[in-house]
């Protein structure tokens, strides 16, 4: 799973996701992309599950680019612990995704294979998505 090699601070604020994506909204590498249309927190496990679904459907042909990176640590308190006494321990990594963000790109496969792969990959993600293609 994707995670930062080192970070400046161990814990991060929860934050809120407002507005639309400012960058990463157009295809940069491949011919097809999976674009988020709703805001959300996509964690490292979701990214890995989606990547596996996409590459396996493509039968490891073509190429996949992941354009999001989970760099925000999410903390959780243990079960049956009363409130207070500080912030919980970091549990997993996530990335804040704004609408319009291209999360995955693929190239080197026919359009129908890319579409099916993205449909399988999108099912693993917690944001609603749309498939985009480079203009002919």
């Amino acid at each position: 799973m994707l995670s930062p090699k080192r970070t400046k601070y161990r814990k991060a604020h929860k934050g809120r996701i407002h507005g639309l994506a400012k960058g990463g909204t157009t295809l940069n590498f491949g011919s097809f992309g999976l674009k988020a249309v709703t805001p959300g927190r996509v964690n490292a496990r979701e990214i890995e599950a989606a990547r596996r679904a996409i590459t396996r459907h493509m039968k490891r042909a073509g190429r996949v680019w992941i354009r999001i990176f989970p760099d925000v640590p999410v903390s959780r308190k243990p079960a049956e612990v009363r409130m207070g006494s500080g912030k919980g321990a970091p549990e997993f990594w996530m990335c804040r995704v704004k609408p319009g963000r291209i999360m995955f790109e693929v190239d080197g496969v026919p359009a129908n294979v890319a579409k099916e792969a993205f449909e399988l990959g999108a099912a693993k993600l917690s944001v609603q998505t749309r498939i985009v293609a480079r203009a002919a």
């Binding site: 799973m1 994707l2 995670s3 930062p4 090699k5 080192r6 970070t7 601070y9 161990r10 490292a44 640590p73 999410v74 959780r76 308190k77 243990p78 079960a79 612990v81 009363r82 006494s85 500080g86 919980g88 321990a89 970091p90 549990e91 997993f92 990594w93």
Partner: peptide, 25 residues
């Protein structure tokens, strides 16, 4: 490499077994 922060990625369930957290609670 000395980055304790990478722990959540490597072992997400580690905090449940953390004795320090239970003691504090």
């Amino acid at each position: 490499a000395g980055a304790a922060v990478a722990a959540p990625g490597a072992a997400p369930g580690a905090a449940k077994a953390a004795p320090g957290a239970a003691k504090k609670a």
